[in-house]
Design a protein around this nucleic acid. Structure first.
Length: 113
RNA sequence: AUUCAGGGUCUGGUGGUCGCCGAAAUUGCCCGCCACUAAAACUUUGGCGGGCGAAAAUUUUGCCAUAGGCAAAAUUUUCGGAGGAAAGUCCGGACUUCGCAGAGCAUCAUGCCAGCUAACGGCUGGGCGCAUUUUGGAAAGAUGCGACGGAAAGUGCAACAGAAAGUAUGUACAGGUAAUGCUGUAGUGAAAUCAGGCAAACCCCAUGAGAAGCAAGGGCAAAUAAUCGAGCACUUUCUUGAGAUUACUCAAGAAGGAAGACUUGCUCGGUCGAAGUCUCGGUUCGUUUUACUAGCUAGGACGAGCUGAAAGUGCUCGAGGGUAGCCCGCUGGAGCGCCGCAGCGAUGCGUCGCCAAGAUGAAUGAUCACCUUACACAAGAUCCGGCUUAUAGACCCUGUUUUCCA
RNA sequence: CGCGGGGUAGAGCAGCCCGGUAGCUUGCCAGGCUCAUAACCUGGAGGUCGCAGGUUCAAAUCCUGCCCCCGCAA
């Protein structure tokens, strides 16, 4: 069964900065995705205070982590960062899943490798 | 019974599968440190710390067709894991650092009385005032609300209207007097002589407060760069003394008082203390004096100048500060529960029992089934006591009254 | 998480300390000047003073509680 340990997360500010230097990015309604190619598949989440209050932000991060845990193979290999936009706080968990799935499809179409 | 008001408790439950954080335990492997040795190296054993994993066992599925067997897959095991507001950061503390002999001033806060408390602007009890208690009025009771010290210490403010806004006094009518705004009414205004109003105006009185905040603060500490120190090598320059006498070698290199700085917002007071300068040593020059060998001599005093050594390069070693990173602070506490006692109560005391998050890009989730459809506001970030604000629903308790007049 | 600053015409700011009239610049509208535009001249409109409650005769201003925006610190 899929796990989700700390080795698969982006935790340091330097790692985030390295991802944000890459120009490739994909926007969808309430999220956007940046990714830097690498061997390990890692994910970092950015949900700022503009999105909502603490319990809203926690819910979004949990939904994103759960999606990553169950659908790791769909993500591009490398360090990915998902940023939530202002409207993301009003989505339900299933809507978040749909949007992220769509976001990854757009990414694969635009950057095949 | 309903409604309304007040107070209190709870904040989904059970089961299956997967996932996250912390702690403990079993076992295997690896790494580091310590002990056993006269010493070094290696090995063994034991202990401690760190990292990576899971044998047995269990579960699920399939097959054979039976008190089981075989195969495959998965999983180390156990325990614990957000709130009544965790929120706003509005008060009060604990704790930490800085400051600190201490004192005064300024500033800020609080404000009926008494009590509780570690403390508070909180809470409890009482007084006073206001409101509600379903027609109106009155009384009692109940409930709620109240920044409820001082205006006879002083300063100040009051637009417009009005004769006049605080040292007041004018008109009309009426009354009154020996006489007079002496009295009433009208009129203006929020307020018109009443020791007026405003202190959520300055202020006075009483009480209290040092400042900043866990990103406080402390420990271990890589790499790189700069700084400093030591050693070696080379180069350059230089003072004094001694040795040597073209070249060179060896040695030497200090101490004290004050301007200023810091001192939490200010002062007194307190703490630290650079350059320059002075004293002192060396040396040069000048002035003066003493000695006799009568000199470009020697010694002393005074004044002035210089100096009291240094620079550069390379290599090696080291140091302190500090960054990344890691650790501590970090959760056993003004703690929780039951009972008893004291008190009107807040609360205090005592017996017994219990340990209940500790993360750090930040953990409580996902999914399925049932419970009536499970649904609000919202999630720790050093920790406590309050207040305020946001809130769906469930349950419990108390009151929703009495008398008189119309 | 902690600590500060600020919400006033469309925009940028005064006025708050010490309470009675909300003002300045720019922009907007109308008229004039010009062949026309700009500049210039004249006139005008435009404000829940972030929201709610309180003190006061009277609140943008004083007090209390909320909402929003911006900034600082390892």
């Amino acid at each position: 069964m899929p796990k989700f340990s700390k080795e698969e997360r982006i935790l340091k500010k330097k790692e985030f900065d390295a991802v944000f230097k890459v120009r490739k990015s994909v926007h969808f309604k309430n999220f956007f995705l940046k990714c830097k190619e690498g061997e390990k598949t890692k994910i970092g989440l950015t949900v700022s205070a503009k999105v909502g209050k603490a319990h809203v932000r926690n819910r979004i991060k949990r939904a994103l982590r759960e999606y990553f845990r169950l659908n790791k193979d769909k993500f591009p290999s490398g360090s990915a960062v998902i940023v939530a936009k202002t409207g993301a706080g009003e989505l339900s968990n299933s809507e978040i899943r749909e949007e992220i799935g769509a976001l990854i499809k757009i990414w694969q179409r635009r950057y095949p490798f």
